[in-house]
C-alpha cells in the first residue's frame, strides 16, 4: 500500500516536472525541473528495490550532468534570448502529433509486455541479491566477471569524450605558452586562420 502511494507520487511528480522541463521558458528553470525529474526517477528505482541504480542516478545525473548544464548556461551570455519566441511555431503541428504517436506506440508496447515466466528469468531474484548483500554487490559480481570488457570499453569512452571536450572547447590561441617564442607565428604571418577571431577549432600546427 505504502509502496503504491510512493510509486504514484514519484511517477506523477516526475511526469509533471518533465512537462515543465519541456515547456518552461528559461533554460535555467528547465534544467532545475530536470533535477526534479532525476530525483523522482531515482525514487522510482528505490521503489522497485534497485537501490544502487537510485544512488548512481542521483550522483551522475543530478550531481554531474545537470551541474555541468547549469555551469554552461551561466557561462554563456543568454540575455539576448529574452524577447525571442522559445518554441518552433511551424514545427508544433508536426512535433505534437509525433510525440503523441510515439506515446501511443510505446504505451501499446508497454501494455502488452509481461515479465518473463518464472523459469525463464535470470538468477538474481530478491533472495539471491539479499544473500549477496545488496544490489551493489550483485552488480559488482556481474560487472567484474561477465561484463569486464564492456566496463573497460566504457573507461576508454569516458577518456575519449573528456579529451574531445577539452579539444573542442579550447580557444585556438590559448595553447601557446606566454613567454615561449612560437616559431609558427613567424612562418605563417597574420593571414593564417588563427588570426581571424578564433575561426579555427583545431590547432593549425
Amino acid at each position: 500500500m505504502i509502496e503504491d502511494i510512493t510509486f504514484v507520487y514519484m511517477a506523477v511528480i516526475a511526469v509533471l516536472a518533465a512537462l515543465a522541463t519541456v515547456l518552461v521558458r528559461s533554460p535555467v528553470r528547465s534544467a532545475l525541473s530536470l533535477v526534479v525529474v532525476v530525483f523522482h526517477v531515482a525514487g522510482l528505482f528505490a521503489v522497485m528495490d534497485a537501490m544502487f541504480l537510485a544512488v548512481i542516478q542521483v550522483m551522475v545525473y543530478a550531481g554531474a550532468i545537470i551541474v555541468l548544464f547549469l555551469f554552461t548556461i551561466m557561462l554563456l551570455d543568454l540575455r539576448h534570448e529574452a524577447g525571442e519566441p522559445y518554441l518552433h511555431k511551424n514545427q508544433l503541428w508536426l512535433g505534437i502529433p509525433l510525440a503523441i504517436l510515439l506515446l501511443v506506440e510505446a504505451g501499446w508496447i508497454a501494455l502488452n509486455t509481461e515479465p518473463l515466466a518464472e523459469a525463464a528469468r535470470g538468477a538474481y531474484d530478491a533472495a539471491a541479491i539479499a544473500e549477496l548483500g545488496g544490489t551493489g554487490q550483485a552488480l559488482a559480481e556481474v560487472l567484474f566477471n561477465e561484463y569486464l570488457l564492456p566496463f573497460e570499453i566504457a573507461g576508454v569512452l569516458l577518456l575519449a569524450s573528456s579529451v574531445g571536450a577539452l579539444l573542442l572547447a579550447r580557444r585556438p590561441d590559448e595553447d601557446k605558452l606566454p613567454d615561449a617564442p612560437d616559431p609558427v607565428d613567424d612562418v605563417t604571418g597574420p593571414d593564417d586562420e588563427r588570426a581571424e577571431g578564433g575561426a579555427a577549432i583545431w590547432p593549425t600546427r
Binding site: A14, A18, V22, H88
Partner: peptide, 18 residues
C-alpha cells in the same frame, strides 16, 4: 512512466528552439 518521459523528451527536441 518511461514511455511518457521518452515522449515528452522527444516533444522537447522537436519543439524547442534553444
Amino acid at each position: 512512466v518511461g514511455a511518457i518521459l521518452f515522449a515528452l523528451g522527444m516533444l522537447g527536441v522537436l519543439v524547442r528552439r534553444s
